[in-house]
Structure formats: structure tokens, C-alpha cells
Computed example of a mutant assay.
Amino acid sequence: MRYGMNPHQSATVEGGPAVIGGAPSLINYLDALNAFALVREADDAGGLPAAASFKHVSPAGAALAGAVDEVAAETWRTPDAAADSLISAYVRARDADPKSSFGDVVALSRPVDAETAEFLRTVICDAVIAPGYEEGAVATLSAKKSGGFLIFDAGTDWQPPARERREVLGAIIEQDRDAADLAAALPAGALDETRRRDALLGMATARYTQSNSVVLVRDGAAIGIGAGQQNRVDCVRLAGDKARVWWLRRHPFVRELPLVDGMRRQDRLNWQIRFAGAEMTRSQQAEFTELFGAEASARYDERTWREEWAEKLDDVTLVSDGFLPFRDNVDHAAEYGVRTIVEPGGSTRSDEVAAAASEHDIDLVTTGLRLFHH
């Protein structure tokens, strides 16, 4: 490998997907392997092309192919993306948290076609993994980063072994790979077709997200992922805040910020996110006023438009990789438009959790299946 976890660590690898472009590091391998496993399971469960945007061993976004809404189409300049296309899956995945997706590893569940390859050429990403590439796609991607863009070919027959093994600080650990049937864990008839699809996408995403994790899914796309927190309610809040910013980016005030000559797409996106989420420092507020004008600056300090718009976010499914230990998880979830919760169950306070769900008119589905991942 180019290096291990950090540039001062040398590393080697045996097995895994074929590298047909660039020189990967250890983190690139970890992202690519986990991301490809996620999208393949999501595709199998949903029956549609799936994509994930991976950063630092957790997904920033994951989605099935579907309609690309006006904001995403405008942002990513993909007005003609078909609802059943591979490119639509990745646009929806990347649009969930575009601040985090900057410089991501892209995972795709179907062979990369010319349209998707051309799109990937235009965005800041570091690598792609897929089960093959259609004619011309590799040549298009190889031109990125002066030939240094990473291209993994997972092939169509790749299967991870039934047992997985790692060595950590001298300890050798071996376990069964987590291959539990996600669909079988969902009680039959508990959810309608749309919410079942969202639940399965959320479960596949949680399975490959660093624990503790919570995934918020809406219309076949994970719009907020809270990863790697030491307590579960922080996962809910983190996922919810990301989902809320995604939703607020659809508000006219955010969409219609004045265009600034010469401003790059990612810079504009970052300003929209700061504006939508009310997360600017004082120095950033001064710069924002200079760039976008006094009217936009005055709106930044207003709370009413954000609160009114946030209340319209609805039909969200929350998937938790572990049981919800306290009702505060449900109380916070209700603030982000959650109408369905899917969790393993089994907490000593499950009765309180169920009561909270009932109070908020949230459907609670327990699976008995924990999906921790480290």
C-alpha cells in the first residue's frame, strides 16, 4: 500500500478487490471494503442500484436509485438523471451530507456506466469501488487527480469469508462475519413497502457504520447518519441535526442566496450549510455579509423560518444499531420528523421507550438484531 493508517506507517495487503488505478492507503481499503459491502446488501434488499459516500470508515450518505429532487439536481447539475439510474443513487447519497462527502470513497452496486463516470470526474472524490466498469469508464476516471485517482474493481463474484480475523496490539481476534439476514429480522407485516425499504437501507447502513450509530432514512436515502458516539442519544441528535440541515437546504432562503462570481460549488455548498444550520463563527458571519449581502445576513439571525420549515420534515425512519436505552432518544427523534423507529429492543426500559413512541405517534419495530460495527 501507499502507506498504512498514516503516512509514517508502512503497510501491505493480501487479497481484496483489484486495484486498477492509483495507489491506496489502509484507510482507502477500509472505506472501499465496508462501502462495497453496504451497497451490495442495500441493492439486494431494495432491488435497485445503490450507492454510498464513505469517509473515515463510516458512510456520510447512502441511497438507492430514485428521483433526484430539484435542490440536488441544481446542486450537482444533474437535471436529467433518471430515477432508476446508478448516478441518481450516488447523487442522492452525496447530497445527504456534502460537507462530509468532500474527498470521499464512492461505492456503487452496479458496473460504472459512462454517465456516472463522467459525473465522478466533476466532483471531489478520492476513490471508487464497483463490480466492474463499462467501456470507456476507466479511461474517464483515470484522468482524475493526474492519474492518481483510486479505482477498485470488486468483480461480480467477490464474497468475504465466513470468518474474519484481525490483530490488534498483539492480540489476535477472530469471529464470524456479521451475515445475519436483515429482511428476516423485520417482523412480517410490521411496515408497508416504502417504510420496509427505508428500514432495510437503514439497517444495511448501520451495519457498516462505526458504533454507536443511528441512521435516518427518507424516501430511499439516508439523510442523516450519527456515527461513533459513546452514547446513543448523541447519535440521534447528530443524525437529526444532519437531516435537518439537509431539509433546510431546500428552503427558498438557502436556495436563493445570491450567486457570487468565481465561487466554487463546494464553497457555495459550505456557505449554504453554515447558513441553514446557523453554525457560523463571528468572523464567518462578517464574511458571509460581505459575500451575500445585508438581507441574507439579517435572515441568518432569524429563527422563525428555520423552525417553521423544520416542522414540515416528516415520514422519516430511524434505525438504531443497538437498543434505545432511554425515552429521550424517542423524544429527540420526534423533533426530526421520525415516524418509524427500528431498533433491536431489549432495554431494561423498553416499556418507557414504547410509551414514548406511542405518545409521539411513532411506530416502534423491534428486530432482536444488534448491528454493532467496529
Score class of each variant (00 low, 15 high):
I225A: 04
I225Y: 02
G226F: 01
A227W: 00
A227Y: 00
A227Q: 01
G228V: 02
Q229H: 11
Q230E: 15
N231Y: 12
R232Y: 06
R232W: 04
V233K: 00
V233A: 05
V233W: 01
V233N: 03
D234Y: 06
D234I: 07
C235I: 04
V236C: 06
R237M: 13
L238M: 11
A239D: 04
G240W: 02
G240K: 04
K242C: 06
V245T: 13
V245A: 11
V245S: 08
W247F: 14
W247D: 12
L248F: 09
L248G: 04
R249T: 01
P252I: 07
F253D: 15
R255W: 02
L257H: 08
P258E: 11
P258M: 09
L259R: 15
L259F: 15
V260Q: 11
V260M: 07
M263W: 07
M263L: 13
R265T: 10
R265P: 07
R265I: 10
R265C: 08
R265Y: 09
Q266T: 12
L269H: 08
Q272F: 02
Q272V: 03
Q272W: 05
R274P: 09
F275A: 04
A278L: 13
A278W: 11
E279Q: 14
M280H: 05
T281A: 13
T281M: 12
S283A: 15
S283T: 15
Q284V: 12
Q284R: 13
Q285P: 13
Q285D: 14
E287F: 12
E287C: 12
F288D: 06
F288T: 08
F288G: 06
F288L: 09
F288A: 08
F288K: 06
L291N: 05
F292K: 01
F292A: 02
A296Q: 03
S297I: 07
A298T: 13
Y300W: 13
R303H: 11
W305E: 07
E307Q: 15
A310P: 04
E311M: 15
E311W: 15
K312Y: 07
L313I: 11
D314K: 10
D315L: 03
D315H: 09
D315C: 08
L318A: 03
S320N: 08
L324W: 00
P325I: 03
F326C: 10
R327Q: 11
D328F: 11
D328R: 10
D328M: 13
D328T: 13
N329A: 05
V330E: 00
D331Q: 11
H332P: 03
H332A: 10
Y336H: 00
Y336F: 02
Y336G: 00
G337C: 05
V338Y: 00
T340P: 03
T340Q: 07
I341K: 01
P344Q: 05
P344H: 04
G345W: 01
G345P: 01
R349T: 04
D351V: 10
D351E: 14
E352H: 09
E352L: 10
E352C: 05
E352D: 15
V353S: 05
A354F: 08
A354Q: 12
A356W: 00
A356K: 00
H360V: 02
H360D: 02
H360S: 04
